[in-house]
Write a protein that binds this DNA or RNA. Structure first.
Lengths: 164, 164
DNA sequence: TATTGTTATACTCTATAACTATA
DNA sequence: TATAGTTATAGAGTATAACAATA
């Protein structure tokens, strides 16, 4: 399979390194996945920065805004982040007045994360931006391809991690 | 769309955080992309570790093994890593005797990275492992879905990065 | 004894700037 | 004046262990 960039992105200034696409890694799905993710992450962070958020804090805010009253432990499991990282993310969101910690009535060890009114407003605005950015990347897909991509990614994403 | 993990990964122990899939992020393509990439990266690193490599060093080794004699600058551009990161990656590979730096006859400022015989052997073995691991993840796709996924990812991956 | 949130620490990654030798 | 490789450094991100309160 010959140089794919020249076919898919003809307007981009061609650099000398484009010839390296003709290598093993160039056709590697894992490599493309990493690349695509980097682009996606960069765009999302750029959009979210306008709302004082990053992908991480936006994820936590979204989950809090879902009114499911997650505990920090649940956030940690779901986002696959260490509990200590959740602490700093919530500290940050709490300082910004977007969420607050409430004691879990079922377990006095646990905190439950709830969104504030301000948090709801910021989340709504940030979500609109994030979705627009997502449409800019994935919107070209017809609904069929879109749902196919979603199910493929979900299948990989929900595979149990390497049994270490 | 209700809890997808229970549908796609029924054997995984169900944790309390699975209920959070019913949130905005749960259906977010960017989120799924990040997850899928994390899984893919983790598996690749686990496999490559058996050969003393990581994804980064394997990529450099692969490009060197492609006999295209890339300069460090080209590797930096292609892999989107800072030139200084390429330096340490090549230092590492050179110490392990897998690649060597040769002066570029066309430009005395530049080095060209070439694979050694030992590097070729290690690369062949590592590549076999990496491809097996890739088949374990993506092999379930029929050829049609496989090429569709490849073209979608490539399209996103080769988009020009956010015009900062 | 085990678990939740927390703190502290160290280690990897990433980004930036400066320097040299060439162009 | 600009570019290739290198070095140094600081920041972000990540992983680990320990601790107090609670289960």
């Amino acid at each position: 399979m010959p140089n794919p960039t020249s076919a898919t992105s003809p307007s981009r200034p061609v650099t000398g390194s484009d010839r390296l696409w003709d290598s093993v890694v160039g056709g590697d799905l894992a490599f493309l996945l990493a690349r695509a993710n980097a682009v996606s992450l960069g765009r999302a962070n750029a959009v979210l920065a306008e709302h004082g958020l990053k992908v991480r804090s936006y994820s936590v805010l979204s989950l809090a805004a879902g009114d499911s009253r997650p505990t920090q432990r649940e956030l940690s499991e779901f986002l696959r982040l260490d509990p200590s990282q959740i602490v700093s993310l919530i500290d940050e969101l709490e300082r910004a007045g977007l969420v607050s910690r409430e004691p879990d009535p079922n377990d006095r060890r646990a905190n439950v994360v709830v969104v504030t009114e301000e948090g709801r407003r910021v989340h709504a605005a940030a979500r609109a931006g994030a979705e627009a950015s997502e449409r800019a990347m994935f919107g070209v897909l017809d609904p069929d391809d879109h749902s196919r991509l979603e199910s493929v990614l979900r299948a990989i994403a929900t595979e149990t991690p390497p049994a270490s």
